[in-house]
């Protein structure tokens, strides 16, 4: 695949026009495509800032999926039944899959997998702050599924219509799979809530701890969100942070009632006039502190990620050595025990 830089050069040469004139024409074509709700595809011209914004956002999203495996994997060995254990393993595996879809989408913008991982490991790219909170009890697995994945879905469904094609396509796949994540969490909490007094208390405690961080997942209020306006204009983002946060609160209140659990907010009440639930102020100081690296688990998460990467090095090396040995001087596409696509096509003809 040609790098974006190479494409730009080739385009200017083919055009035979000065770069500035060419860029202006491309900018107009890009603006028109976005305005017409068409998708921008990897080889299309796009403004550098649009590309950079997408790389930042998709990378952050991919890293969140990968780091998000840790707090839940923490409970796999202690799941209370084989059923719950199998579900949790499938969910954690899904998160890995989501990370891979998103890394692939980011790579279409001209960055590489290695660069993305380096930036995660060195803290130059972020992941969602929600994963810097600990999973103290089994009920936290339920609270994460219901609230954290619920908030993620609220954020992600509009991203299925994002102006950048590969990101939108990855989100379609992810949203389909997230639905199971949210429902298993809700069911888990419901089982605890209906259980013994201690189990009910454990579920309530988990919800108390995860509620406010989940609301923070939608990002700072609209008037303090530095990237929002431009992202909305580019149709990367379709709704504002506050709008999505409100939508999430409205969805959660009746769900909490069905769980027979309360949400830890004394100001939470239905506002007839607005047609929405009012809710109390969010502690943004906590949000910014966690973002700066001062959350309960920031250090632990990134240390674990680096360790997993380092300890997996021998597997990557062995696989590469095996591939080199078996491909030898060929182009890396040795015939396997499986039919090649070509053979299959021939057979079908």
């Amino acid at each position: 695949m040609a790098t974006p830089a190479a494409q730009r050069t080739a385009r200017t040469e083919a055009d035979g026009t000065p770069d500035t004139v060419g860029t202006t024409a491309y900018q107009r074509a890009f603006d028109a495509a976005v305005a017409a709700d068409e998708r921008v595809e990897p080889r299309d011209w796009m403004p550098d800032a649009y590309r950079a914004t997408l790389v930042r956002q998709i990378a952050q999203h991919a890293h969140s999926e990968i780091i998000g495996m840790q707090p839940e994997a923490n409970w796999i060995t202690r799941a209370p039944s084989l059923r719950r254990k199998a579900i949790l393993m499938a969910k954690v595996q899904d998160e890995a899959g989501h990370g891979l879809y998103l890394y692939s989408a980011a790579e279409t913008l001209g960055t590489s997998r290695e660069e993305l991982l380096d930036k995660l490991h060195s803290g130059r790219q972020k992941y969602s702050s929600i994963f810097n909170y600990p999973t103290l009890t089994w009920a936290d697995v339920g609270a994460i599924g219901w609230l954290v994945d619920g908030a993620a879905i609220t954020n992600q469904v509009p991203l299925c219509r994002c102006s950048y094609g590969p990101y939108a396509r990855a989100m379609v796949r992810i949203c389909k799979e997230e639905s199971f994540h949210q429902r298993q969490g809700y069911e888990l909490l419901l089982a605890l809530s209906k259980g013994t007094t201690e189990q009910h208390a454990m579920a309530q405690d988990a919800v108390n701890r995860w509620w406010w961080p989940s609301l923070m997942m939608f990002g700072p209020p609209d008037d303090a969100s530095q990237h929002s306006a431009q992202s909305m204009e580019w149709k990367i983002k379709r709704h504002s942070n506050d709008e999505l946060r409100q939508r999430f609160v409205d969805i959660c209140v009746p769900q909490a009632e069905s769980l027979d659990l309360t949400l830890p907010d004394p100001d939470l009440r239905w506002n007839e006039e607005r047609g929405h639930y009012d809710f109390g102020p969010i502690d943004w100081t906590e949000f910014w502190e966690v973002l700066k690296g001062n959350g309960p688990c920031n250090e632990q998460r990134i240390t674990q990620r680096r360790r997993a990467h380092d300890e997996g090095a021998w597997v990557r090396e062995a696989a590469a050595a095996y591939a080199a040995k078996h491909t030898g001087h060929t182009d890396g596409t040795r015939t396997t025990g499986h039919q090649t696509a070509h053979e299959t096509e021939a057979e079908r003809a």
Partner: peptide, 9 residues
């Protein structure tokens, strides 16, 4: 979609 792998297998 796409993915990285050392060989076809």
């Amino acid at each position: 979609g796409s993915l990285h792998a050392p060989d076809a297998e």
